[in-house]
Design a binder for these strands. Structure first.
Lengths: 187, 187
DNA sequence: GTCTATAAGCAGATAGAC
DNA sequence: GTCTATCTGCTTATAGAC
């Protein structure tokens, strides 16, 4: 395979930015082309399945970044509070300090919803399980841990929605700061 | 003004359903036409400003339904716990038991975001103020009330996002059930 | 692997008959 | 007030040269 002008990693980063800003339907090939600097035909050379395959690749790319930044810290061999604190740093970076949208949100409706719901469901499942295990490690029972883990995801998603609607990132910042204590405080 | 074949109220309800299911960019005129049973030209007769005006009218329509179902209960002359409980019934209906998306979410990005952010911001502001006043009436100070009100909105939005991504409404139902107690419990 | 040029179809929007 | 027919431009996607 001959070298491309731009590493696929970089291409995916740029595609991701467009999908996250405009959503699936709003991310036109023209915009994706401009953002990558590649002509439309070059994009179709990379992704023979067209826009749908681009979105799928973006989803996988985003998923692997999320694993590295957010899931991995939850599996470290340190105390629960420390794991959750490290995770919040990862979340802060992953969501660009609260200024980025989540693909869980943007790919969950309309044409994208029909195509990608199974993947979204899987991502949520993995995140909730990793969170719940940390909370169990802190001494909470299975049900309590599952519920708190779910609440954490709800809170993160909600804060991102609010931040986007208001144009402010302060809600996300506050929520992130309080998250570890909230997940571990006595019932 | 001669009578129309369908009351504008009914037209707005149907437009709302499409915008809430597909988002702004995904809601094509063809779909809006099919959902209302009106030809494209008839839609443009109602809304001379085109799709942008349709979305604006939908936003206003949704806003007034939200006022009646959710804000009004918060201003009743009964105890705070009762006001919040009644509000959750309104939320349940407004969001179709958790199966409907929120325009705060769907109109917050892409082309819609640029057009409607001010209105979204206003809606959030009104909801948060109404919630905070009830929480203050229960004896909490201004800051605590504001924070809890904001958390409530975050939680509702997040639960809707999660519900859409997983195709389940159980998260929304649980969150709604716990909301009054959570907003009023001792600090 | 990248490009220019172009195809085919759908988008939003309008004209004008009834 | 509603319709059919139509316009223009943008959409996704492809062909084929370099």
């Amino acid at each position: 395979m001959p070298a491309a002008l731009m590493p696929k990693e970089e291409v995916l980063d740029r595609l991701t930015r467009v999908f996250r800003e405009y959503g699936y339907d709003g991310a036109s090939i023209a915009r994706l082309s401009a953002a990558t600097g590649l002509g439309k035909a070059s994009l179709y050379h990379y992704f023979k399945g067209g826009k749908q395959e681009m979105a799928g690749a973006v989803l996988a790319h985003v998923g692997s970044k999320f694993s590295a930044l957010v899931i991995a810290p939850l599996k470290q061999h340190v105390d629960p509070e420390r794991r959750l604190r490290t995770m919040t740093y990862g979340l802060n970076e992953f969501y660009d300090q609260g200024g980025a949208s989540c693909t869980l949100d943007l790919f969950g409706f309309g044409s994208a919803g029909e195509l990608f719901q199974p993947q979204l469901k899987g991502s949520i499942h993995r995140f909730r399980n990793a969170l719940a295990e940390v909370i169990r490690a802190a001494g909470f029972d299975h049900n309590k841990a599952e519920t708190r883990a779910e609440d954490a995801i709800v809170t993160i998603q909600g804060a991102l929605v609010l931040g986007r609607a208001t144009g402010e990132t302060s809600v996300f910042q506050r929520v992130l700061k309080d998250l570890p204590e909230r997940l571990l405080r006595p019932a």
